[in-house]
Computed example of a mutant assay.
Amino acid sequence: MYLGSFLFMRALKHGDKRFDKVKKIPGKFLIYWLIQGVWIALTALPVYLTNSIPAKIHPAIGVRDIIGLAIWGTGFTFEVVANYQKQQWRKEIGVNYKRSFISHGLCPIFVTFLITRVSGIPLLERENDRRLKDVVAYWKYKKETSMFVPTWPRTVE
């Protein structure tokens, strides 16, 4: 829900350059659309399966459930903080540039694959590398900041 809202608001404000070219090519756009549909279906599948079990036979919440919620909460917190930090960075440094955005095991792997190899990081990094190629602060930020896993800030020498 958060990610969908975040992406929707960003698309309303700035559009989404990742889809500008493919929107004009129906076959290619269909492939993008279908991949996103599979992504949503796989991500939501555990919820659908859980909700299909009658409430009276649901097991009680256990330790694994609490651990899963804690992991989810931590990840969600990192996502919110990362989006906030990126927005702040864009407001402070990128002002002069046009701005362009625990389940059954398979879902997290699939989502990670899509974000790190298909639609998220590679597309946005290529665009930012091209668009901000002369902005020293961007390259410093990119070098000092972990791409995906939160870490302590690195110092550049």
Results as ranks from 00 to 15, higher is better:
123 L>E: 12
123 L>A: 07
15 G>V: 10
140 K>N: 13
55 A>D: 15
6 F>Y: 12
92 E>K: 13
26 P>V: 00
51 N>M: 08
99 R>P: 01
118 V>R: 04
4 G>V: 07
116 T>R: 09
92 E>T: 14
25 I>L: 02
135 V>C: 06
104 H>K: 10
27 G>H: 04
94 G>A: 08
131 R>H: 03
21 K>I: 07
17 K>F: 12
9 M>I: 11
144 E>S: 15
142 K>L: 12
145 T>E: 12
3 L>N: 10
32 Y>Q: 07
91 K>L: 04
35 I>H: 03
36 Q>I: 11
120 G>F: 01
17 K>D: 09
44 A>N: 04
47 V>E: 13
90 R>W: 06
90 R>L: 07
98 K>E: 05
36 Q>D: 08
57 I>T: 15
115 I>Q: 13
97 Y>A: 10
97 Y>C: 10
145 T>D: 13
28 K>A: 11
149 V>D: 04
138 Y>I: 04
20 D>R: 00
103 S>I: 02
39 W>L: 14
83 N>A: 09
32 Y>E: 09
81 V>L: 06
23 K>C: 06
40 I>H: 06
70 A>K: 02
106 L>N: 04
74 T>E: 00
156 V>Q: 10
115 I>Y: 05
62 G>S: 11
49 L>R: 12
101 F>Y: 03
100 S>E: 06
148 F>L: 15
151 T>Q: 11
5 S>F: 00
75 G>C: 02
62 G>T: 08
30 L>A: 11
19 F>M: 12
106 L>Q: 03
37 G>H: 09
150 P>H: 04
135 V>W: 00
101 F>T: 07
63 V>W: 05
13 K>L: 14
133 K>R: 07
30 L>D: 00
107 C>T: 10
99 R>T: 05
120 G>Y: 01
102 I>G: 09
12 L>A: 14
27 G>C: 03
98 K>H: 04
91 K>N: 09
52 S>D: 13
154 R>Y: 00
137 A>R: 07
145 T>F: 08
153 P>R: 09
70 A>L: 06
73 G>C: 01
52 S>R: 06
46 P>N: 14
40 I>R: 03
23 K>T: 07
5 S>N: 03
85 Q>N: 10
61 I>C: 14
107 C>H: 04
